[in-house]
Design a protein around this nucleic acid. Sequence first.
DNA 1: TTCACCTGCAAGAAAAAACTAGCATGTGCC
DNA 2: GGCACATGCTAGTTTTTTCTTGCAGGTGAA
Lengths: 107, 107
Amino acid sequence: METSHTGDELARILATLANPHRMRVIAALAHGRNYVSALARELGISRPLLQLHLAKLEAAGLVTAAFELSADGKAMKYYDTVPFAVTLTPQSIALAARTLTTEEGNN
Amino acid sequence: METSHTGDELARILATLANPHRMRVIAALAHGRNYVSALARELGISRPLLQLHLAKLEAAGLVTAAFELSADGKAMKYYDTVPFAVTLTPQSIALAARTLTTEEGNN
DNA sequence: TTCACCTGCAAGAAAAAACTAGCATGTGCC
DNA sequence: GGCACATGCTAGTTTTTTCTTGCAGGTGAA
């Protein structure tokens, strides 16, 4: 299920996952999709903060968002996890590092 | 080769790997061990900066350091990669998230 | 209309990470 | 001694990330 990532993509994925709040978001969504207000209550964090983290997770391609109308006509934004599988080894890091574009330093 | 990590350990590993310089350090060391001054020249970064990154890599358990005397009696600090293999999936993240200690928010 | 729920956004404060510059130590060699 | 190489550390700046606060919009139901 995993296309190999560029160095920049991998760096972004790792940076995104390396955050307690975002790990908990992934954990919560792994149990099933949810909309942001309910998720904020479940995790005990403010909604703007959760939206920030969800935006980063979505930017990294780790979750997806979908609008849906609830039974009573409210617009709900549902988030769900994207199935991903990334294996980290010194070799996989070395391979990804070849495609890093981050400024000057090529090795 | 991988003992399962706590949430905090995993977060630290990911945060450590999510940096272009440190990815390049891993890549360089994957080819073979090296000492810090030579490594700094190879990567084209300042030695203090490299030392900072090496310290973080070592703190995360991704590289090891060993002192050695060169032929002409100079003390050299050699670094090498530690073989690691971490697989990231929504499920593995969810599992690790259970052991996060980062303050208040338990889900 | 008012209340309770959903969404979005942005400005500013606070905290953490990255990076630079500089000085210290020691060695062997010319 | 002076030069070239190795190491270590720290103080201060810059940059990035995180988080709060507060406001905007919308819906349906009492």
